[in-house]
C-alpha cells in the first residue's frame, strides 16, 4: 500500500509514453502527452499529502495541513499544459492543411515522394 500511489503514477506515465510512441495519429499523440502530464501532477501532489491533514487553507481548528508547495507548482503547470496542448493542436491543424493528413506514416511517405521529385528535377 505504501508505494501504491507511485505504482499508479508509473502506470499512467508509461501508458502516456506508449500512446506517444505507438500511435501515428498526431492528435492521439497529443492526448498521450497530456496523460503523461497528468501522471506528473500525481507524482508531485501525492508526496505532499499527509494522512489526517487537510487542504492548505488555514483555519484555527486545524493543525495538520498537506504541503502547499507542490499544489502551486502543479496549478501553474496545468494552465501552461493546456496552452502548449493548444499550440500543438494548432501545429497539427497546419500540418493537416499542408499535407492533407495527420498520420505520421503518410506524412513521411509524402515527404519521401517530394524528395524523389526534387532529385529528378535536379
Amino acid at each position: 500500500m505504501a508505494h501504491f500511489m507511485y505504482i499508479a503514477t508509473v502506470f499512467l506515465m508509461v501508458a502516456g509514453l506508449y500512446i506517444v510512441m505507438a500511435r501515428g495519429n498526431l492528435i492521439k499523440k497529443l492526448i498521450g502527452l497530456s496523460i503523461l502530464q497528468t501522471s506528473v501532477y500525481l507524482l508531485y501532489i501525492a508526496p505532499g499529502k499527509l494522512l489526517g491533514g487537510t487542504a492548505p487553507i488555514l483555519a484555527p481548528q486545524y493543525t495538520v495541513y498537506s504541503n502547499p508547495l507542490p499544489h502551486v507548482l502543479i496549478l501553474t503547470a496545468i494552465v501552461v499544459g493546456v496552452a502548449t496542448l493548444a499550440l500543438g493542436l494548432a501545429i497539427t491543424v497546419r500540418i493537416r492543411e499542408a499535407y492533407g493528413t495527420i498520420e505520421e506514416d503518410e506524412i513521411i511517405a509524402i515527404e519521401i515522394e517530394l524528395l524523389k521529385k526534387a532529385d529528378k528535377l535536379s
Binding site: A46, G48, A55
Partner: peptide, 10 residues
C-alpha cells in the same frame, strides 16, 4: 489528496 485548488483547475 487535499489539493483543492489543483483539482478545481484540472
Amino acid at each position: 489528496l487535499d489539493a483543492v485548488d489543483v483539482a478545481m483547475t484540472e
